[in-house]
Design a protein around this nucleic acid. Sequence first.
DNA 1: GGTAGACCTGTACCCGGGTACCGGTTGCAG
DNA 2: CTGCAACCGGTACCCGGGTACAGGTCTACC
Lengths: 148, 148
Amino acid sequence: MSTDLRSGQVAEAAGVNIQTLRYYERRGLLAEPERSNGGHHLYGEDAVTALRVIKAAQRLGFTLEEVAELLEAGRLRHGRPVAGLQDRAAAKLAEVDAKIADLTTIRTVLAAAAEAGCDDLTVCASRTCCPIPFTDLAEGNRHAGPCC
Amino acid sequence: MSTDLRSGQVAEAAGVNIQTLRYYERRGLLAEPERSNGGHHLYGEDAVTALRVIKAAQRLGFTLEEVAELLEAGRLRHGRPVAGLQDRAAAKLAEVDAKIADLTTIRTVLAAAAEAGCDDLTVCASRTCCPIPFTDLAEGNRHAGPCC
DNA sequence: GGTAGACCTGTACCCGGGTACCGGTTGCAG
DNA sequence: CTGCAACCGGTACCCGGGTACAGGTCTACC
């Protein structure tokens, strides 16, 4: 019933490079499929789904390592509850929120810089009228508002 | 008048690693300073400021290469207007906005996944009730809302 | 059964942004 | 004047996420 796909077809269908497919297999994100007599990989439809899942998780902000854990957890979870998708999604949600907040700060600063007509960073850095909070930004502070 | 600082002191003051200091010099982000007879770098206070500027720009989302261009542009600009900080800040602002929008989408999806009680990605991917839009996400689509 | 094109494995390289190690000077305090 | 920390340049390595290339094999179609 598995509609025997070749690697090129799978890669194509999922929109990834063949090398990437191989790479995911090496990293354990994708199960090694059946082989033809000659050693060619023979995938089922589910491989395409799996790739899409990986890509989706990646876009949700998970690293490949996290994706691997997530899939592994899913595979093992049968019955007993492993700290699974739910918890991790919640944690990732917090991360994403933090990142959004951070970018929002940055947005504010950039907008201020654009509006204030800053033109040269090195000059701005020594003028008190510049809205860029160099020191705070350098230290990676959140919630750093314009200084003046 | 330059309060002759040594590399360790500069690095310390700016909160970076000495190797990083060297690295920035190699990349042309930082002017090579005076040297002592023995070849030790002798920095002025301005080096610390320069480092802070670099770090700030980096946190605003500029790559080191962009920072280098920005500084270069500032240095050359004297008089005639080069496409300087202003334009780039505006462009970067757009990028940041796009990134925020993207993350917001992701946030929505993660929240939905958490709420729907998804537990296993591979299982979810084949159930229509899962709110994760695998296909859309895989293709990197913006504005991909929950599918059901 | 020949041949084009897809596929195989293995290894090496790319990017950005650093960081680490090494063996050899310098600077400064005691 | 000695000893030790700090510094020097150069090179090599790290991370994450791939991508490329070489040289050999398989499949499918004519």
